[in-house]
Write a protein that binds this DNA or RNA. Structure first.
Length: 824
DNA sequence: GATTAGGTTTTG
């Protein structure tokens, strides 16, 4: 900014007399002017707000010879520019005519065009730099009677600008071509410059200490109190504010506007506000501000050093370096005042019972309670020091996820929003970031049932009420995702998404838009058919048989003990059974030891075992049999008689195929409740119903591979297959659905069931996956979403047909590749 | 085209 301060009192003396001879008469008297130095704009820099604060635009037609023009401005387009008349001694005079631009206000050109007389250096400058068609803003003028009104039919007044208090601001004409709308600099004397700004009006901002009743002003200030817009009894919404500035005056401001988006976007005390065209009014002995015609408002964050980003819904608004400076100056000033509130925004973790506070949070779910109350479930990523009250609402009334009513981690706050706020709350979408103003932390003493002691059982649960009314600024508003406070909040919330990176995305994404906004899903479909995704509720309602693609979360699963999910089933008779436990198997082995007769036709190796003192077993003979000692595949198959389960396992770890047998003269297999074959750590079972055991001869030499299938076939055993069977309860935003995971469980977990039965690591992998899909102690918001292919089919159960759903063609993704355990 | 509200705690 460039400003020239000239001596305070200027006496119009000799050269003023010369003007009496000029075309325009200036009145001829010697006057004292208010101190008002010349201010010229340089390089678009802002003017001194202290000075501009005193300026007030006046339409040309409203000027009268008696108008007090102190602090007034006039704006108009140059329609005539006269010659520069030299008065000697470097004194000049120039006459020009400007016309009011707003023709609606002044249809009569007689009253909208006015003569302007410029004197001295300003006249010379004007001559050099102002052209016809330019739009000017004049300040520091005086009004006199126009001596030429009869001749030129212009305004009865003229404007006189001279010397130190006069300012001329030049704007580009709006009729100029786009090429010439680029701002151009014009050099004024004394090395000063005027910037031509493209169709941008200059605003002058008034200090709150300089407000007189009944004027329209522009204001820059800091917000020290505010209410969110509320519906009036009239046609508009009303925002009630109290603002202050460097003058330390606090001024009330009432904003009426029928459009919510045109109300000031104030998020917290300390925000900076710029008001255009508010009128001053005396109310209860104090000046207050009220919206007037053409009102507009822009707000800014009040934090020193943060980016100066105007908050406005207006598509065109003036914002330049001047505004930047004004905001920064107010921020600096406010930082040293104690404006900032007694009840700041506090995290849930610092909330005290009975306190009123502002909460910045994310909306998880909402549900109407009754006509004057809505429940909001929110979190801010901090854990409240007091147990949080849970408010029960029918799950199907929630928008968001009904299971959010679980409050496992004491992170979800229940907020009851009453009366006038219900309407605002109704518009909110889960995932939105919010600020709730003047929230009331209401302690609810709840005594735990079943304990007589009254003292120790009083637990204070905190519920939160946004009471009706707007006292103390009560209300709520959505915060934009890019606001500094939301950015801070997101950082906190993100620390909770370690388990599942998609968590926040999920809540920012309505479930129905999954396909348009891809979300990291914990499972993926492997099917090659294409069907449109449906909700679980839609899947339930459709006919059979069907294949569905759904997105859902895992609500619960069974069995919780994963080894219980291991099953044996017969491909022939379809019978599914549990894998016998070791006690059962051991019992079969012990029973079989009684049948230790000879085995005709087999090569034998006998091992005599003495009675072990530790156990109850008598002394025994353990016999290894083979079809032949040396030849072919037969040597790979060992029949073991008289061993315990433990011994069989031990021997199986050293020999490839061990078949436990017994004999009452003829060798035969054990009861098929026990494995008929041990291969390493794997145990194979046969179907009691479908096997036709026959140990008559060695396995055929045509067998290329000696494995469970060929051994089973050679022994007449119908091999049972291992499988994993789980019941998964899925849930989406519509309903929950019980499904089975069976046919495609192995690809789902990336393990083979037989491994899961024999191998600790494989079991752990299944366990890990289930814990990822359904973390122990988690609530629904923490659980990942699954992309699933479901098939629906009908089964008959107790004479009744029932629809079953099975997860098919689906595999879990492995976000963290399985770590190979280090050697120990 | 004027009017609305004019900071100041529900009582759930």
């Amino acid at each position: 900014m460039f400003s020239v301060n000239l001596p305070g009192k200027i006496k119009f003396t000799c050269w003023l007399c010369l003007l009496l001879h000029a075309e325009e008469c200036l009145g001829g008297e010697t006057r004292n002017l208010e101190v008002m130095p010349i201010h010229l704009v340089k390089n678009g820099a802002s003017l001194d707000p202290q000075v501009l604060a005193q300026l007030q635009p006046v339409p040309i037609p409203l000027l009268t010879p008696t108008s007090d023009c102190t602090g007034k401005t006039v704006k108009g387009r140059v329609i005539h520019k006269g010659p520069l008349v030299s008065m000697g001694d470097d004194s000049y005079v120039l006459k020009t005519v400007i016309q009011e631009e707003d023709t609606q206000q002044s249809p009569s050109s007689e009253h909208s065009s006015i003569n302007v007389v410029l004197l001295g250096a300003l006249a010379k400058s004007y001559f050099e730099h102002v052209s016809q068609g330019d739009v000017l803003l004049l300040a520091g003028f005086t009004v006199g009677k126009s001596p030429t009104v009869n001749k030129d039919k212009f305004h009865v007044c003229n404007l006189q600008l001279c010397g130190d208090d006069a300012s001329v601001y030049v704007f580009l004409s709006s009729t100029l071509s786009p090429r010439s709308s680029i701002p151009s600099k014009r050099t004024f004397p004394h090395g000063t410059e005027v910037t031509k700004a493209a169709k941008v009006a200059k605003y002058t901002y008034v200090s709150l200490s300089n407000l007189k009743p009944g004027i329209v002003v522009n204001i820059y200030a800091v917000v020290c109190f505010f209410k969110q817009p509320f519906q009036t009894k009239g046609t508009d919404y009303c925002s009630t504010l109290k603002i202050t500035d460097q003058s330390n005056n606090k001024v009330g401001c009432t904003i009426f506007c029928d459009k919510l988006e045109e109300h000031p976007k104030i998020f917290k005390i300390g925000d900076i506000i710029r008001l255009h065209r508010v009128k001053t009014q005396l109310f209860n002995g104090a000046i207050s501000l009220l919206t007037s015609h053409g009102f507009s408002v822009v707000t800014f964050d009040g934090t020193v050093g943060s980016p100066v980003v105007p908050r406005t819904s207006s598509r065109s608004f003036k914002f330049d370096e001047e505004d930047q400076h004004a905001v920064e100056a107010l921020r600096m000033w406010a930082a040293n005042q104690s404006l900032v509130p007694t009840e700041p925004s506090v995290p849930l973790s610092s909330v005290q019972p009975k306190a009123y506070f502002d909460l910045t949070c994310q909306l998880l779910a909402k549900a109407p309670v009754d006509s004057s109350c809505t429940l909001l479930k929110v979190w801010d990523g901090t854990k409240c020091a007091y147990p949080l009250l849970n408010v029960f609402v029918e799950p199907n009334t929630f928008e968001g996820s009904p299971t959010l009513s679980q409050n496992v981690e004491n992170l979800t706050a229940n907020i009851l929003v009453y009366d006038n706020h219900v309407q605002v709350a109704r518009e909110l979408k889960p995932g939105t970031y919010l600020r709730l103003y003047n929230l009331h932390a209401v302690p609810v003493a709840s005594r735990l049932p079943g304990n007589g002691s009254e003292q120790s059982d009083e637990t204070e649960h905190l519920g939160f009420h946004l009471h009706g009314g707007t006292s103390y600024g009560r209300g709520l508003r959505v915060l934009p995702d890019d606001s500094p406070d939301v950015k801070d909040l997101k950082k906190i919330l993100e620390t909770f998404s370690d388990m599942n990176d998609s968590l926040l995305d999920v809540w920012n994404t309505p479930p129905e838009s999954f396909d348009s906004a891809p979300v990291e899903l914990a499972t993926e479909r492997t099917c090659d058919h294409t069907v449109d995704p449906v909700t679980l509720a839609e899947a339930k309602s459709k006919g059979l048989p069907q294949v569905f693609h759904v997105k859902a979360q895992l609500k619960s699963y069974q069995p919780q003990k994963l080894y219980q999910s291991l099953k044996l089933f017969c491909r022939k008779c379809k019978f599914i059974q549990d894998v016998p436990d070791d006690d059962t198997v051991q019992g079969v082995f012990l029973e079989a030891q009684k049948d230790d007769g000879p085995c005709e036709g087999y090569w034998s190796l006998e091992v005599h075992l003495p009675r072990e003192p530790r156990c109850e077993l008598p002394s025994r003979t353990l016999t290894l049999h083979m079809f032949s000692q040396l030849e072919g595949k037969a040597k790979e198959l060992i029949f073991l008689k008289g061993a315990t389960l433990e011994e069989t396992c031990l021997i199986a770890s050293a020999y490839r195929n061990i078949v436990p047998v017994r004999s009452q003269g003829t060798m035969t297999l054990l009861d098929l409740s026990a494995p008929f074959l041990f291969r390493g750590t794997r145990r194979y079972y046969g179907c009691k119903q479908c096997s036709k055991v026959n140990l008559k001869g060695p396995p055929g030499e045509e067998i290329e591979v000696m494995d469970e299938n060929s051994v089973a076939e050679a022994l007449g055993v119908q091999l049972l297959q291992y499988g994993l069977l789980m019941k998964l309860e899925l849930q989406d935003e519509t309903t929950s659905l019980e499904t089975l995971l069976w046919r495609d469980a192995e690809p789902f977990f990336h393990v083979s069931a037989v491994d899961a039965a024999a191998d600790q690591q494989a079991q752990e992998r299944v366990q890990e996956i289930m814990e990822r899909l359904c973390p122990p102690g988690s609530n629904m918001v923490e659980r990942p979403w699954l992309d699933l292919c479901l098939s629906a089919y009908s089964v008959e159960e107790d004479g009744q047909r029932r629809t079953c759903y099975q997860i098919c063609h689906t595999a879990t993704r492995c976000p963290n590749p399985h770590n190979t355990p280090s050697d120990t």
